[in-house]
Design a protein around this nucleic acid. Structure first.
Ligand SMILES: [Zn+2]
Ligand SMILES: [Zn+2]
Length: 433
DNA sequence: TTTCAAGGCCAG
DNA sequence: CTGGCCTTGAAA
């Protein structure tokens, strides 16, 4: 009954998607923000008044260059000759003046206005063509990130794990042997160093694969612009803040599958290790166990495509922070590329889908935040079963457990933010303290 | 009524 | 001359 709805972040997705109906094409002359449709063309206030004055008085502008000057980065057109020339070229005309609100049926303009229609088309083309360069980059970013995520999981098992059969067999034996609750196992081990079952046979083998996967993440992420000047250690450090996101990919790619009856299925190459839930409850901390199931449930509701999965991952990994400000640009590209992907798949419903995805992403952030409260208490046990130095460092490094989870309003995702769309989290039973 | 550009005003 | 802001009035 108590539907736990939280508004952690409210965002105007319309604006974020750049499909806000009130948004106006940029100034066709200088590229700055336009103030509307002036003399037949979308222009800014400055270019509007510049054109009017220039067209009314016959100014004899001269170009000191080669009559092909462009506005500078601040959208300031230094050369009057070229500015006026561009106005004419784009089709500004004192004869084309519009008053009042826009008509629903501009297409029914009479033939006398055909000239103006052509000019308008021209300006509309400028509007739609100029952002394309950015879009191309953004699309490439999305495709590149998808490829990287795919490459990470495209493992040549024969080459990298020549004795995989043995490894799997041993892991299965370990699973079979699990027969005591964590407390008993851990108490006995702590006091006497004895193991009441062979769970370390399982975890020890699995940790080899996890370590190997982390390595693959680090090396492949290095291919992303923004990461390529970082060392692999730096990427590793960055990555360990996002182990829950990595787990999302593990679930999404069905490497872990909680949805097959009483078993958790662990898929490694073409081997399946079936772990009865009861044994899993003996193996994982209860809160950990429950969290993983919750994530699994939410994820199957979302049922993301591979591209969407890529976005969820990159939304986290590329989140700009003070250490890596260079990620900002890549992050923006990613979001733009993904936005276009969503629009091409869902059309008008892309906003709703984007909401679902952002909700899911925030759900994960919230889970991580909650989990980091209890994780220190299970550190001992987990470091017993996952004993390699790399994994100790990865899961239980102090910086991971102490990290703040912020829903910061300065991220570029929320820069586009406004408070029109209320996001709803957890439409069912997930409750926090 | 509301929307939206034209043109005036004025400081820089 | 430039350009932000405001008033005015046309059009839907
Ligand atoms: Zn302009
Ligand atoms: Zn010039």
């Amino acid at each position: 009954m108590e539907s736990d709805q939280r508004t952690i972040m409210s965002i105007n997705v319309e604006e974020f998607l750049g499909i806000d109906k009130t948004s106006i094409p940029p100034c066709s002359i200088c590229g700055g923000p336009s103030s509307g449709y002036h003399y037949g063309v979308f222009t800014c206030e400055a270019c509007k008044v510049f054109f009017r004055r220039s067209a009314k008085k016959h100014h004899l502008y001269k170009c000191s260059g080669r009559e092909n000057c462009s506005p500078d980065k601040n959208a300031i057109f230094a050369c009057r000759f070229c500015r006026f020339a561009k106005c004419l070229d784009v089709g500004m005309s004192l004869n084309y003046i519009k008053h009042g609100r826009y008509s629903q049926e501009k297409k029914l303009l009479n033939s006398k206005r055909m000239a103006e229609i052509d000019l308008r088309k021209k300006s509309m083309m400028m509007y739609s063509i100029s952002p394309l360069a950015n879009f191309t980059e953004a699309d490439e970013m999305l495709i590149g990130c998808c490829n990287i995520l795919s490459d990470i999981h495209n493992i040549n098992w024969e080459e990298d794990f020549p004795h995989l059969d043995c490894l799997i067999e041993s892991a299965k034996q370990g699973v079979d042997s699990i027969s005591y609750p964590i407390e008993q196992y851990h108490d006995v081990f702590r006091l006497s160093g004895l193991e009441v079952d062979d769970r370390r046979k399982f975890s020890g083998k699995i940790q080899q694969i996890i370590e190997y996967s982390i390595k693959r993440w680090s090396t492949n992420l290095k291919r992303i612009p923004g990461f390529n000047d970082l060392t692999e250690d730096e990427i590793f450090n960055h990555l360990r803040s996002y182990s829950d996101i990595i787990y999302v990919t593990v679930l999404a790619l069905k490497i872990h599958n909680w949805n097959e009856g009483e078993y958790l299925t662990l898929k490694i190459s073409d081997h399946n290790i079936l772990i009865p839930q009861r044994k899993m409850e003996y193996f994982l901390d209860e809160r950990d166990f429950n969290m993983r199931k919750r994530i699994s449930n939410q994820l199957s509701k979302l049922n993301p495509t591979f591209e969407e999965l890529t976005l969820i991952v990159m939304l986290n990994l590329l989140k700009p922070n003070e250490n890596y400000p260079q990620l900002q640009y890549q992050y923006n590209k990613m979001i733009l590329g993904f936005t276009r992907y969503l629009q091409s798949i869902h059309g008008n419903n892309s906003t709703a889908r984007m909401n679902d995805i952002i909700n899911f992403q925030s759900f994960i952030t919230m889970e991580t935040f909650q989990a980091n409260k209890w994780r220190p208490s299970v550190k001992d046990y987990y470091q017993t079963i996952f004993f390699s130095e790399i994994l100790k460092d990865f899961w239980f490094h102090p910086s991971v457990l102490q990290q703040e989870v912020t829903f910061d309003t300065s991220s570029s995702l929320t820069e586009f933010v406004n408070d029109n769309v209320q996001l709803e989290y957890f439409n069912e039973s997930v409750s926090f303290d």
